[in-house]
Design a protein around this nucleic acid. Structure first.
Lengths: 252, 252
DNA sequence: GCGAGTTTCTGTACGCGTATAGAAAGTAGC
DNA sequence: GCTACTTTCTATACGCGTACAGAAACTCGC
């Protein structure tokens, strides 16, 4: 019956918006609203969602996402692990909030070209660049295809740019989704590969596979075996994006 | 110093190949090699990697991947949790083995078209279809861009098809990677969305976002808000793939 | 037969995310 | 002040993956 009250359904939450903008409207009891508002009922909170997210960001920035645990975060804000769960639904929601927060302070909605096709490319590249900066997104970006309120403007630019190139709105949405799949896949694969590399020696499992290739059955791969590592190390996101957008537009 | 001995570096492992082909060369002591081979040293194993993988597959098939735990698997094979770690490095490797196993019995390397472009599309679609069937890949496919030995033949077909369309081998590899990013991203996003939907009510966080769109700032998205759900529910993998391959080939 | 060496298996323990139960700390009606 | 009600926080516990320390079971050289 009882369910965690945060950010669910029709929460009438007058004072604090859902955004995680930092220095504004800290929700301490001292500074109250002057007039008319009903006093809050229930035990007054000792920690706020905003404080939780801010502390989590600090931990991630300083020591990496793998050091962010609910227990650690709890002691850091001077509370107990389970108390956090009244401010975030679970750890994944916390990560989504962190990602949104990062996007908000990284994505600058300025300077996009006016020409539609270039605007699509620039907007996609901006999202890609912003997310590539934090390598822990992997566990999150599998989520909703539009990640957060703060990146919606770029989604708008992509859809609008595709429409500006002559696509119907439906095809434009479809095109946006293709671009997002490509972008998310690239980020995920690269981030995971990097994590594996950092984890320890692990011979990548690829060298093993390439070592015993059968040149009879797989001539192309066998011929490329020695160059494969260097080829896949290159950053070809932009080239693939160009090709994808070209293909999407060519379907008139 | 001591490290888990399985599948690492230069393991001289004469009898059993690394493949997980099921009914062959079970590694019981009874049936020994007839001649010349030195007897195995050390305590004889009571369980085999192949048995572990087979049992894991049964659990996943019968009850879903979320019920596959190392402890459960251990009791199921009549052993203890830590004993498993002498046959698989960790749970992730076990999942990779399961995925490879699934690919091996799903991917049929027959009936691909001869015409290069069609072959690229068919091979990519085959991989996509095989992986879409098991929704738990998400936790795995983030890994190496070529997933397993058993899917290499399809990778070969894609690269060879791209070369057949006039691309240089380097561009063909780059094209394959773009196709893989797109495919992996699509699978990941869809699988995660499905998992979230199954998990519980969760209003998808999208309805919330779309509810308070600012039509001034985001006119396209606001205009599409009511249709967004149905548009993103469609399966447009193939359309996007077509576009991507078109774009890759158009770059001559 | 017996120690040395090697491999496999068992037992125990840690830290993790979080479910559940209930205590604590406020307001509202009386 | 007292009782209800609501919200927030605390305590305890579960199952998870797996690190670590040794015991067990075999072969080999003597």
């Amino acid at each position: 019956m009882q369910q965690p009250p945060s950010s669910q359904s029709t929460d009438s939450q007058p004072p604090a918006s859902q955004s995680t903008d930092s220095q504004s409207t800290a929700s301490q009891p001292p500074a109250r609203r002057p007039a008319a508002a009903r006093k809050a009922t229930g035990r007054p909170p000792r920690i706020s969602r905003e404080e939780v997210v801010r502390t989590a960001r600090r931990i991630v920035d300083e020591e990496g996402v793998e050091r962010l645990t609910m227990r650690r975060l709890a002691t850091e804000v001077g509370s107990t692990p389970m108390a956090l769960y009244h401010h975030v639904r679970d750890k994944e929601e916390l990560l989504v909030l962190l990602l949104d927060d990062h996007a908000a302070r990284t994505l600058r909605p300025t300077g996009l070209p006016a020409e539609p096709r270039e605007r699509v490319l620039a907007a996609a590249a901006a999202i890609h660049e912003a997310l590539a900066a934090c390598p822990w997104i992997v566990e999150v970006l599998a989520g909703d295809s539009l990640l957060s309120a703060h990146s919606l403007w770029f989604v708008e630019q992509i859809v609008d740019g595709l429409v500006g190139c002559g696509l119907t709105p439906e095809r434009a949405v479809q095109g946006y989704r293709a671009i997002w799949y490509y972008t998310a896949g690239e980020l995920m694969v690269r981030a995971t590969a990097a994590r594996r590399r950092a984890a320890d020696d692990r011979p990548t499992h690829r060298q093993q596979v390439f070592a015993d290739l059968d040149p009879e059955r797989l001539p192309r791969l066998a011929g490329l075996a020695d160059r494969w590592s260097s080829l896949t190390a290159q950053d070809t996101y932009r080239d693939g994006l160009d090709a994808l957008v070209d293909g999407l537009l060519a379907a008139h």
